[in-house]
């Protein structure tokens, strides 16, 4: 554990708490892409299949359980109580390509051809692009609520800080893995436009609006 990873995990935790707060406070999931939320649920379920086979620490297990449970809760609530508050007509990104693309990538680029390892690798590639339906929806509507922008910033910062963590771990431990590094870089690049608008507008107290 190092400071980049710890802050990254806390940002991830914060992002979900902000999203839950947004949905509760506004009593609405408007502006949230259901497809991205569904992809995150798939990401965490496939990544944490080792939950019962590979004990790391109480911290690790608690975080895994929280990420699976909270993403499942959000997907469930968007389908149930908050179904009428978001518009599926705005959420039109074709996620079949992301699901299929991540499958192809994990079959080509992986370290071990085992059940757990392939699913773990799949989750890494899928996470890199899971935000695309959300970004696509925002590019169509051209704006986002401030609290939604904070949610997305915390979520993007999580993987961005993991990239810094991997560079730090290489420098201090000689630990290096290409797959999560490249996937983390892809995700951070996809976020670039969002980060730019977030820093130039939302951090200065303005509404998140695309130029």
């Amino acid at each position: 554990m190092n400071v980049f990873r710890l802050v990254a995990d806390l940002m991830h935790l914060a992002s979900i708490l902000i999203l839950l707060l947004k949905i509760r406070k506004t009593r609405s999931a408007a502006g949230i892409s259901f497809k991205s939320q569904l992809l995150y649920l798939i990401v965490f379920v496939t990544r944490y299949l080792d939950l019962f086979t590979h004990w790391v620490s109480l911290y690790n297990t608690a975080m895994k359980v929280f990420f699976i449970a909270s993403s499942g809760y959000i997907v469930y609530q968007m389908q149930r109580r908050y179904r009428a508050t978001w518009d599926p007509a705005l959420d039109t990104f074709r996620i079949e390509f992301l699901l299929g693309g991540a499958a192809v990538m994990s079959l080509i680029f992986h370290t071990k051809f085992t059940f757990l390892e392939l699913f773990w690798t799949y989750s890494i590639w899928l996470e890199a692009v899971a935000i695309l339906p959300q970004l696509f929806q925002m590019s169509r509507t051209g704006e986002a609520e401030t609290i939604t922008a904070h949610y997305l910033f915390a979520l993007g910062a999580y993987r961005g800080l993991y990239v810094v963590n991997w560079i730090y771990r290489y420098a201090t431990e000689g630990y290096w893995e290409w797959i999560p590094f490249l996937a983390g870089m892809v995700q951070t690049v996809l976020y670039a436009d969002f980060f730019y608008v977030y820093f130039s507008r939302v951090m200065r107290g303005k509404k998140f609006e695309l130029p």
Binding site: D9, V56, N60, M63, F67, K112, E117, G174, Y175, E177
Partner: peptide, 10 residues
């Protein structure tokens, strides 16, 4: 490096 090390991360 062992691939398992990555699984300690979230």
């Amino acid at each position: 490096s062992s691939p398992d090390a990555a699984h300690d991360e979230l």
